[in-house]
Amino acid sequence: MQQLLNGLFVGSIYALFAIGFTLVFGILDRLNLAHPSVFAASAFIGIELVEVAGLPWWAALPAVAVVGGVLGLVVERVAFRPLKGRADAHFAGLISSIALGGMIIALLQWRYGPDTRRFPAGTFPDGQLELLGARFTILQAAILVISVVLMVALAWLVARSRLGRAMRAVAENPTAARVLGVDVDRVTATTFAISAALGAVAGALFAMNVNSAQLGMGSAIELKGLAVIIVGGMGSLPGALVGGLLLGVAEVLAVQYIGSSWRDLVAFALLFGLLILRPQGIFGSRRLREV
């Protein structure tokens, strides 16, 4: 039970990170490899906000989301928009986002140095909860709740709102969306901003949860995030949540039953098996190709 909960908590972070990742992929068909850098940057910026500006956690998180959103706009503007209409936009976007991601990390090192940093003690109320004999912190529970709430809110946004309709139209066919009067550039930028804001919240929560923020924290979670969006189905929001939780639980079970050295193999075995058996992922639907 304890281990199951541990798995869910680990998984909720994976999910939160992957939701932003998969949003951009689902709507814009682009893999944004600067996402892990935004994840790391927001953790460091969040720490500074709490440490220097003295913000409490409930104010720091939205602030971090805003900072993340701005970073997302920068990423879109610098690394993706100039590539619009290029035949190799797919590969080029990977590279440009890697390049920009590297620059963000370099700037972080300039600003904060290479050392591990952390939120000051007591940023988030300490305290333990107990459920069915399993112990966990309030923060862990909060992360799970925040992940689910953000996911539901985002799913609602995409399914119901005007912006969501525009997003889906762009996902379906950008050219047609433009003809129908959708401002594709604005929708694209907004999508990036939302995606990055989610990644930023994930980064800050992650740093709080494990009491550590490192320059390399994004790349450590990057592969897991990729695995999650494949498992859940590229572009599927509920898929990212379920995929994240599933991966978290699977890893924990692997520790318990197979051995900790093989834990990381689980993500890739899961990923590989699913790609072979069901490439569209658990929740993904196969896209029809127009001939």
Partner: peptide
């Protein structure tokens, strides 16, 4: 230090864009 990875990223970005 940080300036080198930063410039390397910038150069890469310039080439690809």
């Amino acid at each position: 230090g940080w300036i080198r990875p930063f410039l390397a990223g910038l150069l890469l970005l310039a080439v690809i864009l």
